[in-house]
Nucleic acid binder design. Structure first.
Lengths: 179, 179
DNA sequence: TTTATACTATATCAAGCCGATATATTTAAC
DNA sequence: GTTAAATATATCGGCTTGATATAGTATAAA
């Protein structure tokens, strides 16, 4: 999904600024399966605005300087619906930590242990935060996707907890460092 | 991880051509947690070559035309090890399918069902392929990462199998199509 | 046998994305 | 009273992505 579609998705749920859209992907409901940064959001909003798919309202007062709140237009809603009607492309998972663990034998054992435990801590914390959501009034889609995310994070934590000692001891550590 | 490090990683396991490197990420042992295409691989190999981190051997005969086989140099091995010594950045998961399911209420129910079942089929097949690997002579790191991948794919399949009927029936379908 | 399809193999390109950075105000903390 | 964090918009170079071009080889079908 391109940045334009992601922005439209956030806006069909309610008006938002570029900053607020970013927060949705950083900490909000999309954080565990999509990401888009300012460098994509602001150009996307400009293009969507040009195409008449969203409308902007500038609010100069209200504390912060020149906040621009965007709202999706009926045309924007139609375009968003059409985007969803297409077959989605396959998932993309990029885990540098998995790549690093793949090469465990090339690593200093202490570094491997640190990376391993930081990774576990990160996902345990993420699960904790996700479990806090109050399901009251939340859409079926959002609840389902949250459950899916929880299921696989929990699988990762379980696997890594169960195999921790075995893996950290089995990895020879710095195998051919003196080559 | 940038394309250069990913290429170095493949090459420390054994000499390979650009085409063979690509296959490692398309179908090989890295397929489920990293991806890199020709558009990144060939420029990366050129740069690594310039920097003396890999050496190229052209084999004009042997059937195919001008196949270039790359081998990592001692300097390349050192650089690769240093890359792994850094703290890896957090995982990036981009699931357009999850995004689509988040907005289930905006979708045609038949389309949602099709996407849902295609997704399940895709991951069931991926699990089947991953389970085929013969663990004989495979490194600890590779076995661990494969187990991790299997664990979370299985979690996804289990969750989606268990919640299929509930979700597909609960999603109202085309909720506000006539707005 | 010829034709078509798939595979091996390298390479480039436009469009778009990513991470970092710049700028500036406001709120919160110490 | 000062520092740090949060709010807020925006840009930029470098890199990645997906598509495309090119071309020989192997395999299978007609």
């Amino acid at each position: 999904m391109d940045a334009k579609t992601l922005c439209l998705g956030v806006l069909v749920m309610g008006d938002a600024s570029g900053y607020e859209i970013r927060k949705m992907f950083e900490e909000g409901p999309f954080a565990h399966f999509q990401d888009v940064g300012y460098g994509s959001i602001y150009p996307a909003l400009a293009k969507l605005s040009d195409e008449g798919l969203i409308a902007v309202t500038e609010t100069p007062d209200e504390g912060h300087p020149d906040k621009k709140v965007y709202a999706v237009t009926p045309a924007g809603r139609a375009v968003f619906r059409k985007s969803l009607a297409r077959a989605p492309m396959t998932d993309k998972i990029r885990s540098d930590t998995a790549f690093l663990m793949f090469f465990a034998e090339y690593l200093d054992p202490d570094h491997l242990r640190t990376v391993y435990d930081d990774y576990l801590t990160f996902y345990r914390e993420r699960i904790r935060v996700m479990q806090e959501l109050d399901p009251e009034g939340v859409s079926e889609g959002r609840l389902f996707v949250r459950g899916l995310g929880l299921a696989f994070y929990q699988a990762v934590v379980t696997y890594m907890t169960d195999n921790r000692e075995r893996f950290l001891n089995a990895a020879p550590g710095n195998a051919d460092a003196a080559e």
